[in-house]
Amino acid sequence: MPIIKQKDYKTWKKFDRKRDLQNWLCWFLGTLIFSFCFGLISSKTIWFYVFDSHNEALDLLGRMFPPETNYFFTLIKPIWDTLNIATIGTTIGTLIAIPLAFLSANNTTPSKKFLRPLALFCIVSSRSINSVIWALLLVAVVGPGVLAGIIAIGLRSIGFCGKLLYEAIEEIDENQIEAIEATGANKAQIMTFGIVPQILPAFTSISIYRWDINIREATVVGLVGAGGIGIELDAQIGDLAWAKVSVILLAIVVAVVFSEWITAKIRKAII
């Protein structure tokens, strides 16, 4: 009750005493947790290095410039590989995500007790494990190279696309399905006429969104040996060839800006 009646006048406050206290307590606790966490981090930090980092950064920048532009031509193949890892990986990921999404959506799953939890578990595990960790595992199994990268990106995309897709399926308009059902359609017909048209826009935008993210992800799977520009980055950092590293970083920025531009274009064309 934020109207406060004094003896001879009444006034107003946003919160009453109790809420006020609660709010301050929350802020206080928040600050406390923050400082506690920060304290723990700082206890494991050698502050000398941190305070010296600007010198280090200047030094590094000095070594990076001027970039060794000739090196760019060696990078064409790795960039091509990176794009392929992202594109093929996304395609595989979304293709596998489709059936999983149908199994996990409340309104389309054939069995709520068994298949749905199983499919959800697949989605969550795929989401929780970063592409780099997937790549780390896959390099050990299929050997270093582009293939490991493609599979890693694919596996990580399953969870992401699966989750967004099954949420989209759960939000579809039941009336339209009922209408199709009322015509005496069988399950497959309901799928193609009732559900697919409704989730097609969501599906395309999810795939494009994930592709955009995967371009970024594909730049790093190489760091653990799974192909693409990351391999070069790892090698050049290992060689301390900073003038080459700066070329790689520039190439990455260009690739990312390019992919963002393309996704924006496609999205506009679809909507």
Partner: peptide, 15 residues
């Protein structure tokens, strides 16, 4: 533009 891992490589190098 830069994936977390790439940023991390540089910050570990700097700090």
């Amino acid at each position: 533009s830069f994936q977390e891992v790439i940023l991390a490589i540089f910050f570990v190098k700097l700090m």
